[in-house]
Amino acid sequence: MSEETVDTPAAIATRGLTKRFGRVAAVDGLDLLVRPGDRYGFLGPNGSGKTTTVRMLLGLVYATSGEVEVLGHRIPREAGAALPGVGALVEGPAAYPHLSARANLRLLDAAGPPVSGGPLAEGVGSRRSRTRRIEAALEEVGLADVGRKPVRAYSLGMRQRLGLAAALLRGPRLLVLDEPTNGLDPRGIAEVRDLLVRLNENGTTVFLSSHLLAEVELFCTRVGVLDRGRLVAQDALDALRGPTGRTVVRVDDIAAAARALGVPEPSPGPDGLDGADGGRLVLDGVGVAEATERLVRAGIAVREAVPERRTLEESVLELTS
């Protein structure tokens, strides 16, 4: 490519994407938009159609109707042009069990077309850079010293890392990851997250499909929520975690505060407990400023007064119920 095109194509764009199995629509009229550089979290309960969607994005499953574009190429017709720029982890890693990690990556790399552009090509044939790329990918995922042990002997976490290494092998512009932290311990999960942040800061678009809200909340900036095959929300993470319009105040003397604000005193429980933190009152129709003012005027010490925000979990549960 000689010049940067003015409007870069979306990393992923689908229009009316639908997949029917018999009479059941597993995916129904999906309009996804993942922009270059996004950290996109694709959320949904088990069986909501996430994996079928991911497979359609990669040309493994053919759509019943609708269109898919990945990195500006139509899928499945131009999959051969789009997929070299994509690294993918779909429904768990896979490898030939009798071969070592390096032998597996070597075979996989040799199976497809050579690298044609990007930082890894460096004007050298991809075959010549293969060993270097394999070592770099293994280093990235923390498998540099696995040695020649066959994959058969690997733990689930190591296999997961190998799957990630395979996805990174060719310096992809877009990573499509389906449950990438499956089988990893907390430290491994944090390492993978750091790796994804680093890659994203270097310009890699990340499409992360997961049912783990915490994982998505910690990493993603944009979220799409799938429920029974339909996209029920697609927005910035902060918008989905938007304010509820209610105010939360935290005070030491909850009974006095309730009297001052003219609300019933909450019964001890998760919402109105009295511990070291004091009590917590949730107010409807009273803003932060007004609540603080009324409490201060009544001589009650206010530890905290903030607009209530929904957690991602609450939003998603609400959207998918």
Partner: peptide
């Protein structure tokens, strides 16, 4: 059955 088919196809191998 080893799951490699999907990775070969997205590698991509026609």
């Amino acid at each position: 059955s080893t799951g490699m088919l999907r990775y070969l196809l997205v590698r991509p191998v026609g």
